[in-house]
Amino acid sequence: MRKQEFLQGIKDGLPIALGYFSVSMAFGLTVALSGLPIWSAVLISMTNLTSAGQFAGVNILLALGALTELALTTLIINLRYFLMSLSMSQRVEEKMNIWKRMIFSFAITDEVFAVSMQHKGILTSSYMAGLVLTPPIGWTLGTLTGAVLTSFMPPVLSSSMGIALYAMFIAIVIPPARENKNVMIASLMAALMSVIFYYAPILKSISSGWSIIIITLAVSAAMAFFFPIADEEEGQNE
């Protein structure tokens, strides 16, 4: 364990944990208001560590849906983690053993992935251990807090926090897009397609989980074909 890298991981993970706390409060709040027991909200957050996937899952549970439907919906909404895990598998140190890989994989979320991707150099075990330590704690404690404090929070405050995570995504994409024309094109195309999928007839009947998967695959594939990365960009990504 290299202390310096572990601390850097903690430092990078902490803002995610804080962001999660406020977002998962909304989740805990919603679940408690919908009538599910508080322990179930906490258990879901502790074992799933997803946002959209959890909300969709709770909707199905409330409707007493079939477990196969629950499994399929969870699979579709969370399939993007497969791509993220694949991408991260290329960045972790090759000698990392299977047990560490199994532990770190649990915490692959949009934000952990995004932060790890902007980390310079390879992802060592020490760095990953620090990075994945606090987000699950923030997520679980936030859920508990939200579920317990259901009646105390002014709605205007909790609803304005919903934008925080998206703002973080914007802050991750824009700086590299400013430096690199291809990243800019890829991001704009993905955003544009997402808007089209959201509003266009027929396309809008596709669930947002599927839309994101389709757009990610299509735009990334097209960009890789027409604008393969040069060696120096690749270095930046490694």
Partner: peptide, 26 residues
């Protein structure tokens, strides 16, 4: 494949953010 994986973070985050961010508050 390397290029594809290089673009994934930016495309997935952009697709998730727009237009969802515009409906993220009340």
């Amino acid at each position: 494949i390397k290029s594809f994986l290089y673009y994934v973070p930016y495309t997935v985050l952009s697709a998730m953010t727009f237009p969802a961010v515009l409906y993220s508050t009340s």
